[in-house]
């Protein structure tokens, strides 16, 4: 009995080893992100930049508008929308595209799957890595949408509630990454273009990016229909904390949707991922 290692000690040792592996995988993703940073940053920023340039700079200059439906500056409406949608799209893309590639080629996922951690830890790492990429995208887009505008058409932004901001950012990014992982494990790699045209683009157009959700009151069927779009909760949540002077969805609604969505899709994604990795 003298050689028996106490179970608690062994479990602690295994946890520490798994954590080291997890950290090494995050470091690998950071290395790749750093290498492609300039191109990724341009890709992430270009669309929001063009939007604020046209709608908050060019149109007010040519007298074509600049005010939203409630009389608020259009630039103010767009800040949470463009930051939120960029984060959602980037967090999804960060997990979906590499994973579709890894799962389509024979055995490509084995590079990471043979590392000494459980498949669950591997899935969690992919989600966390995508969350980080989503947050980086938000950080890149925020100054752009804050600063690009015609004189007198600047957005009015303040942080009304820091804890709520942190929650919305994290839960929204986890939800987006989980949906991305779930889709990657379910779709045929050949349909990835379809995913973009049929899922990402409509989600963006109808995601309360360019208008606030409460402005849809005049079209009730649409106001309810867009609730199927997870991006709405992220954007409305950011709207509530960043531009509190503008009407937004009730806090209980977007907080519940983000939390329940992150948990449910997180669970579905992990289950589906494990089934694809272990044959």
């Amino acid at each position: 009995m003298t050689t028996t290692v106490p179970t608690g000690t062994r479990a602690a040792k295994n946890r520490a080893r798994a954590l080291h592996t997890f950290g090494a995988m995050m470091a690998r993703d950071a290395r790749v992100l750093r290498r492609t940073f300039v191109m990724s940053a341009v890709r992430i920023v270009i669309q929001p930049l063009l939007f604020v340039f046209v709608f908050a700079y060019v149109l007010p200059k040519v007298g074509g508008g600049g005010a939203g439906p409630g009389g608020e500056a259009f630039s103010t409406v767009m800040v949470p929308g463009l930051v939120g949608s960029s984060m959602v799209l980037q967090a999804m893309a960060a997990v979906t595209f590499p994973l579709v590639m890894e799962l389509s080629g024979p055995g490509a996922i084995e590079d990471r799957a043979l590392a000494p951690v459980s498949v669950r830890v591997l899935g969690l790492q992919k989600i966390l890595s995508a969350v980080v990429e989503g947050l980086v995208a938000g950080l890149l887009v925020f100054p752009v949408v804050l600063l690009v505008h015609a004189q007198g058409h600047g957005p009015a932004v303040e942080v009304a509630n820091w804890p709520m901001l942190v929650f919305v950012l994290l839960a929204g990014a986890v939800l987006a990454a989980s949906i991305g992982m779930y889709l990657a494990t379910r779709i045929d790699p050949r349909q990835i273009q379809v995913l973009f045209t049929l899922v990402m683009f409509p989600a963006m157009m109808l995601g309360c990016v360019y208008f606030r959700w409460t402005a849809l009151e005049s079209t009730p069927w649409l106001q309810y229909a867009v609730l199927l779009n997870p991006m709405v909760y992220m954007n409305e949540g950011l709207r509530a904390v960043l531009t509190p002077q503008i009407d937004s969805m009730p806090a209980w609604a977007f907080l519940t949707a983000l939390l329940v969505g992150a948990v449910v899709f997180g669970w579905l994604a992990m289950r589906s991922f494990a089934r694809r990795v272990l044959r």
Binding site: R17, H20, T21, A24
Partner: peptide, 8 residues
């Protein structure tokens, strides 16, 4: 290098 780091 990263394989080595995955393994501790």
């Amino acid at each position: 290098e990263f394989r080595g780091r995955y393994f501790g």
